[in-house]
């Protein structure tokens, strides 16, 4: 486990990013070529997240199933023609009406904007890929500011990260992971749910700690 905060945050940022990649349309050749499973496992190790077992299963699953099988499962879980069993949008889990583009979606959108981030793809902004990618971005800015010694930026982005984590991502990841576990057939996606759940749970400590570390008030 690394003790250098900047280095640790680089690893966290990478972890968020690789998890975001996993929730995109599967591209088996690319995932294999880029050692996705191994890299994810290494990151979890570095961050002392207890996810060795799910990462191994994720890598094996990627090996075992074909591109077509993975794609079918992805479609069935997340896009489902008759209502996806594991909707990848936060508002479905958070808003009373369990609908897309709810109030919670707007919260995410505003937080992107406030951090100077725009969405480059169509669709609601609270997609799991976007939220993970946003966390990756925030963490990377913190790492960069730590390396630059820019305390003001560290404080600002740590606050943004904590706010986004607590008001958005962390609030719906658990039911989302449960939905995957309940409906997934392939080991890759079952393992992915375990990886994500474990990582997000472990993150709570980081985001809370960083945002409360005494730095000049922003």
């Amino acid at each position: 486990m690394t003790t250098d905060p900047a280095r640790r945050d680089v690893a966290r940022s990478d972890a968020y990013r690789l998890l975001a990649a996993c929730f995109c349309e599967p591209e088996r050749e690319l995932f294999l070529a880029e050692n996705l499973g191994a890299n994810l496992a290494a990151l979890m190790e570095e961050l002392a997240v207890p996810a060795r077992e799910p990462c191994r299963r994720l890598a094996e699953g990627l090996d075992a199933n074909s591109q077509e099988e993975l794609f079918l499962e992805y479609t069935a879980l997340f896009l489902g023609p008759f209502g996806a069993p594991a909707h990848p949008y936060g508002s479905v889990y958070l808003d009373q009406a369990r609908q897309l583009m709810g109030d919670s979606t707007m919260v995410a959108k505003k937080m992107y904007q406030a951090a100077g981030i725009t969405q480059e793809v169509e669709g609601p902004p609270d997609h799991i890929c976007l939220e993970l990618e946003f966390m990756s971005y925030l963490t990377r800015r913190i790492a960069q500011a730590l390396a630059d010694g820019d305390e003001a930026v560290v404080a600002e982005f740590s606050r943004r990260q904590r706010d986004f984590y607590t008001r958005c991502l962390a609030r719906w990841v658990t039911p989302f992971c449960n939905a995957i576990r309940d409906n997934a057939q392939l080991p890759f996606y079952r393992a992915l749910a375990d990886c994500l759940g474990g990582f997000i749970a472990a993150e709570r400590r980081h985001v809370q700690e960083m945002a409360t570390t005494p730095v000049p008030a922003a």
Binding site: S13, A21, C24
Partner: peptide, 24 residues
């Protein structure tokens, strides 16, 4: 899908974006 430069924390390692569906 790539990991950040193994070189670690030198400021230069962070330059450039690795965003996918989001952009600054």
């Amino acid at each position: 899908l790539k990991l950040s430069a193994a070189a670690g924390v030198a400021a230069a390692a962070f330059k450039g974006t690795a965003l996918n569906a989001l952009a600054e």
